[in-house]
């Protein structure tokens, strides 16, 4: 187990696991909100739809294509301002 930070909170996670899957489990499928405030979750799961974009270490990244690295800082809001 290695700790990562999600929206300021420390979360235990397994390095190498898929970030999108982790966020799907943690958020009961909710992953972020759009510009208009509508909730969104994983949609395509394979990098084509960009619904799962979050900030990873300050940079936008598709959660469904991101492997968990120890110490990673994830912000669910702001990947798509």
């Amino acid at each position: 187990m290695s700790d990562i930070t999600i929206d300021g909170e420390t979360v235990a996670a397994t390095a190498g696991d898929n970030l999108g899957a982790l966020l799907h489990r943690l958020g009961d499928a909710r992953l972020r909100a759009t510009l208009s405030g509508a909730p969104r979750g994983l949609f395509c799961g394979m990098g084509t739809c960009f619904d799962c974009v979050v900030l990873v270490d300050g940079k936008p990244a598709r959660a469904c294509l991101t492997a968990i690295r120890p110490g990673m800082v994830v912000e669910r809001q702001g990947g798509q301002p």
Partner: peptide, 10 residues
Amino acid sequence: TLPGVMTPGA
């Protein structure tokens, strides 16, 4: 667009 609605591929 609701969370929980996904593609079969996902």
